[in-house]
Simulated scan of single mutants.
Amino acid sequence: MEPASRGTVCVMDASGRLGHSLVDSLLQRGYTVHAAVQNHIAGVQVQQFSGVSSPENEKRLKIFHSDPFDYQSIIEALKGCSGLFYTFEPAQDQPTHDEIMAEEEVRAAHNVLEACAQTDSIDKVVFTSSATAIFWREDHSSMEVDFDERHWSEISLCRKFKLWYALSKTVAEKAAWAMAMDRGMNMVTINAGLLLGPELSLTHPYLKGAAEMYEDGVFVTADLNFLVDAHICVFENVSAYGRYLCFNHIINSSEEAFKLTQILTPSSSLPPQQSFKEDTRIIPQRISNKKLNKLMVDFESENQVGE
């Protein structure tokens, strides 16, 4: 039995791991999906998306080659869509985050939000940001409350310590919010923790400052399925607003740190587990995702009923 039609949405960029999984889940929930992949990624086929599990699902998937720096290609992908799931994926020939990348991410966010404002059908934008846009602050040790969606990373601190990923996510999200408020658009952001997965490596730019994140009790991660569900939840819930810190795990003990190191490091070069066991501390958690968890309760119960 096919799911009831839920309208048409766009996923941009659909070529990354998160975007690809969002396309699959949205198809399975009955949406028609415009999967926008970057122009330089050739040969993407409908059959590559596992959500195309039937001829009916396949009919509801359209692939667009678009570029966040090519305004017209964005407009084409958004035509007829009521919602957009947007995440920035660097071009494959420029994977390294630096200060220039921050400027490009701002420009891309501006282009995409401007295109949404000019597209009459778009009712809601889900903008993927990062937890790193929240917790890099000078005054963190003196804060009496946990980090949550009300907090922003300090741009000057990010530049000072060359935290380019956090800088990119912070300035791009700020630019998106400025554009959304100026154009009167309905937007929510998902400030995601580090996305776990087999392709994760020590070179991931989120990990710059990992030791400090660990000591400060803000080193948070997210599983792919949880992250995808969070995006769909805030899109479908009419009461969703503002920013949502999204994580379902925190690295705050030597045991958890060792598990993450096993993912990040080839086994041949792993430090002995004994060196981790010597540190028996549990770092107090200083970051809260209560706002998202409250919203997800109803979403998860609805999914269980529908299974």
Rank of each mutant, 00 (worst) to 15 (best):
G209T: 03
T170V: 09
D123W: 05
V188R: 07
A175Y: 07
D148N: 15
D139W: 05
M143H: 04
L157Y: 15
G193M: 10
F147S: 01
Y206K: 04
P205K: 08
A115S: 12
K169M: 02
L167Y: 11
E154L: 02
S142Q: 13
V145I: 10
A131K: 00
D182V: 03
V220P: 08
H140Q: 04
G193I: 06
M179S: 11
M187T: 11
V220H: 03
L163A: 03
T170I: 08
D216L: 10
Y206F: 15
L196P: 15
L163I: 00
A175P: 10
K124H: 11
Y206P: 02
G193E: 07
H151Y: 07
L167D: 04
S201V: 02
E212D: 15
V125M: 01
V126D: 06
Y165E: 04
S153K: 04
D216R: 13
G197D: 07
A172C: 05
L196S: 08
S129C: 15
D182A: 11
A175V: 04
A175R: 13
K124M: 08
A115E: 09
Y206E: 06
T128L: 14
L195H: 02
A166V: 07
A192C: 07
M179D: 13
W136A: 13
N186C: 01
E154F: 01
A133M: 03
I122H: 02
G193H: 09
A176R: 00
T132L: 06
E215M: 13
I190C: 06
E173N: 07
W164I: 01
T189K: 07
V145P: 05
P205Q: 08
A115V: 12
D216I: 01
M143Y: 03
S121T: 13
L207W: 09
E199W: 15
A175E: 14
I122K: 04
T189Q: 02
C116E: 04
L194H: 01
